[in-house]
Amino acid sequence: MIEIKGVSKRFGDFLALDNVSFNIRNGEIVGYVGLNGAGKTTTIRIAVGVLQPDQGDVLINGYSIVHDKRRASRYIGWVPEQPIFEPDAKALDYFVYLAGYYGYSASEARSLGKKLLEEVGLGNALYKKLKEYSQGMKKRFALAVSMINNPDNYLFDEVLNGLDPQGIAFFRDLAVKFRKEGYAVLFSSHILSEVENIADRVVFIHKGRIIREMNIEEIRALIKPILKIKVDRVDDRIKAILDKYGIINIKAREKIVLIEEPSTDSSEIVGVLVKNGYRVEEVSMVKSSLEKVFFKIIGEER
C-alpha cells in the first residue's frame, strides 16, 4: 500500500507538484498518466525517498518515507525510466554491494543476486560491466535490485519506454503477476494506451496536479463506436433525419456525418438516407481512441 499524501515540490520558481494525493492499494495496478513534464517522475522520486518533498509525505505500508526512510525503503521497489548505476561496476558485484544495504552478507547476496538476475533474464550477463548493459538490461537490473527485499510495493516509471516487444511483454506480465500476489504497483506512462490493458485504475496528472482518477471501466466507457457516413451533400435536413439514431456530428466540408453510439444497425441508417434522396458514398464504423480520451480529460481541465 502506497499512500501519497498532499505532496508538493518546487524547483526554484517552478511548481513541479501541487498537493498531489492518491493511493495505490494492495493487489492493484495503478496507471499514472500525464504528459512529459507533468510531474510523474518527481512524484515517484519523492515516493522512493530520493527527493525530499517540500510538503506532504508518502507512506509505504504505513511507514513515512520522509521520517522513517530506512524502514519505508525496505517495502518499496523502483525501476526508474533511465536507471543510472556506477558504470564501471560489474553487475553481480554491484548487486552484492546494494544488497549490503539490506543487511545481506556478501555470500548471501551473491547467491541471491545470481537467482534474481537469472529471474529477470540477466543470467548470462552477471559479470558484465553495467556500462555495457542496454537500456532494457538496466531496467531489468534495477528490477532485480528492487526485488532484493521482496517488497510488496513497486513503482515502474515509464518502464516500457525504449523497450523491445520482448521487454514490454516481460514488464507487463510481471506487473500482472505482482497484482496477483497482492502487491501494489504504480505504472507511470505518458501514453494512456500503454497502461490500458493492465491497469485497474488510472490517475491523471497534469502540470503537477492530479486532475482525475478513473477506473479502467470508466475510461473504456469513454471509448464509443462511431458510424461514419460520407454522403454527396450535407444540409440542415440530414441532421433532423438522423437525430433519433444518436449524437450527430457533421463535418460539412468533408461531407461526413458522424453518429456516436448509433442506436440501430448501419444498413438501416443508410436505407433511411437513400430513401430521403441522399447518395451514400462510404460507410464505416470507427472507435474514438484512448489518446483522444486522455486529451479530452486534460482538455477539460484547460
Partner: peptide, 21 residues
C-alpha cells in the same frame, strides 16, 4: 563527484539508507 554527477547515487539512495549513510 562522478557517481553524484551522473546520478548514480540516486539509485543507491532508494535502498534502506539515508543520505547520511
Amino acid at each position: 563527484a562522478k557517481p553524484r554527477s551522473i546520478g548514480a547515487l540516486e539509485f543507491i539512495l532508494a535502498r534502506p539508507v539515508t543520505r547520511w549513510d
